[in-house]
Write a protein that binds this DNA or RNA. Structure first.
Lengths: 98, 98
DNA sequence: TAATTTGGTTTATAAAATAAACTAGTTTAC
DNA sequence: GTAAACTAGTTTATTTTATAAACCAAATTA
């Protein structure tokens, strides 16, 4: 069996990290994701929008202690895509003897 | 422990596939890699050069049945990088409960 | 000898990641 | 009360990467 395609939306270090984090916590705000991923705000902002456009995450905006707060959570669609990505990727990680 | 950086040279579907294949067979020619990865010749050629520049693979050129033949094999450096990449990536694939 | 095929490389274009600059408002220090 | 610094982002521009298209050289086939 040949190697499967890797979902390009998930095959990105930052987006994958975000999805991995959200898979664990089910809800996280922008600052948390920024710290955990060591990303810049600009990059994170862009990548979150892409995940949202794909309906892999939901983004809610509110205010907390007078400051704007952006909260993200993974959708069922996102979880499915993440799980499928992981399964496909595993094929790449364990070399096949031929 | 925060998520580790993923070696950008390996975090590419095609280059990762090539490395994965080479880790299994230790030597493979251009056509084999092209078929197994479903890549175009142009893309494969470019990515092999990048892996070579990083000393992750060696490229030998010869002739077989009158046709040019390009044979690739992974270096020790390449294998180390591949193994490290795999270890780092695993952190992304299993969500952490927090 | 004129296509067609093998086995690629090089160059050009499209897409993606990243960084820099900007927006909007808040808090702190004078 | 106002200037400086900070929070929490977004937008735009630049760089990098991936991909596709075009090309090359030789071999084979018709």
């Amino acid at each position: 069996m040949a190697l499967k395609e890797l979902n390009p939306l998930l095959h990105s270090q930052l987006r994958l990290a975000v999805m991995s984090l959200l898979a664990g916590v089910k809800e996280a705000d922008f600052s948390f994701l920024k710290e955990e991923t060591n990303s810049t705000a600009g990059n994170l902002s862009v990548q979150l929008q892409k995940l949202k456009e794909a309906d892999y995450i939901e983004i809610e905006k509110s205010f907390k202690n007078n400051y704007p707060q952006t909260t993200c959570k993974m959708t069922n669609k996102g979880l499915s895509a993440f799980n499928e990505y992981v399964e496909n990727l595993k094929e790449y990680l364990v070399p096949k003897k031929t």
